[in-house]
């Protein structure tokens, strides 16, 4: 049984229907990647899932029970990192724990562990302005992991770091996920990233957008840099690209609304 199932999800802003009829399921320890052209509503969908904005239609079922409101035991990693500039790395990693009601002793014990896990040991007292984009996102990841979520929502987490850092962080995330596997929904506009991360890739397209195809990714884990060079990876990437090609071409020449 899938841990989380979404049925017929839709979001409307007045006249504008962003997405419609979106079905999705995430199993225990499964990574589901959501890919689509920019403006297709994948980030909006993630925010609906997290309960940050209300869904217009559809239902969410967790462990067989329908859920109204925010998903329990969920943490989010943001494209914009969203670190509090006035807190140090230590303070930022403790942020979610503190809000979840963890005791001071608990925070003191767990925070260093997660800082270590994302490779930020030695930078505990640094403020965000002192960190590179990659390090800031490592901190954002530690903050999310520290609350020990059952579901990680990744909102284009590596879209604002440079290409090399992005690749490093992708494999870092895979390494961390092997050590503490959780369910994950990974939103991205990068087809490569979606195929590399996901057990399944859900391809969104159309206006309003809906699920165009669900691609099972049968690449073996653990996935490494060698995965990127495998013929099967190239095949899957081409397959997803072909689904999105027309749409992407059209989107390129579209004027902003």
């Amino acid at each position: 049984m899938p841990r989380i199932a979404v049925r017929g999800a839709g979001k409307r802003y007045g006249e504008l229907q962003v997405f419609r009829g979106l079905d999705l399921s995430v199993g225990q320890r499964e990574i589901v990647a959501l890919v689509g052209p920019s403006g297709c509503g994948k980030t909006t969908f993630l925010r609906c899932l997290d309960g940050l904005i209300p869904m217009s239609e559809g239902e969410i079922v967790v462990d067989g029970k329908p859920i109204n409101g925010p998903l329990p035991r969920t943490a989010m990693v943001f494209q914009h990192f969203g670190l509090l500039p006035w807190k140090t790395v230590r303070g930022n990693v403790a942020y979610g724990l503190d809000l979840a009601g963890a005791s001071k002793a608990e925070i003191r014990e767990r925070v260093p562990h997660f800082i270590q896990l994302v490779g930020l040991a030695g930078f505990e007292d640094a403020y965000p302005y002192q960190l590179s984009g990659g390090m800031q996102q490592r901190c954002g990841l530690a903050r999310a992991l520290a609350v020990e979520p059952d579901l990680l929502l990744m909102d284009e987490p590596f879209a604002s770091v440079d290409a090399q850092t992005r690749e490093i962080l992708q494999f870092e995330l895979l390494r961390i996920w092997r050590m503490r596997p959780t369910s994950m929904i990974f939103v991205t506009h990068s087809i490569e990233e979606a195929v590399l991360m996901g057990d399944r890739v859900i391809v969104l397209k159309g206006r309003p957008s809906g699920v165009a195809e669900i691609v099972e990714v049968d690449l073996p884990r653990p996935r490494t840099r060698a995965t990127l060079a495998s013929p099967r990876f190239a095949q899957l990437r081409e397959h997803v690209w072909n689904i999105l090609m027309d749409e992407a071409r059209r989107a390129e020449f579209e004027l902003e609304r």
């Binding site: 997290d50 940050l52 925010p70 943490a75 989010m76 943001f78 914009h80 969203g82 509090l84 006035w86 942020y95 979610g96 809000l99 979840a100 609350v147």
Partner: peptide
């Protein structure tokens, strides 16, 4: 506004939004 969104994603109460974000940010 992103920071308020982060706070809500971490299920912050209104009071904690003031303590963690509004006060230090405006200080």
């Amino acid at each position: 506004p992103e920071l308020i969104e982060v706070a809500r994603a971490f299920r912050s109460s209104e009071w904690a939004i003031w303590r963690d974000i509004m006060v230090p940010g405006a200080f």
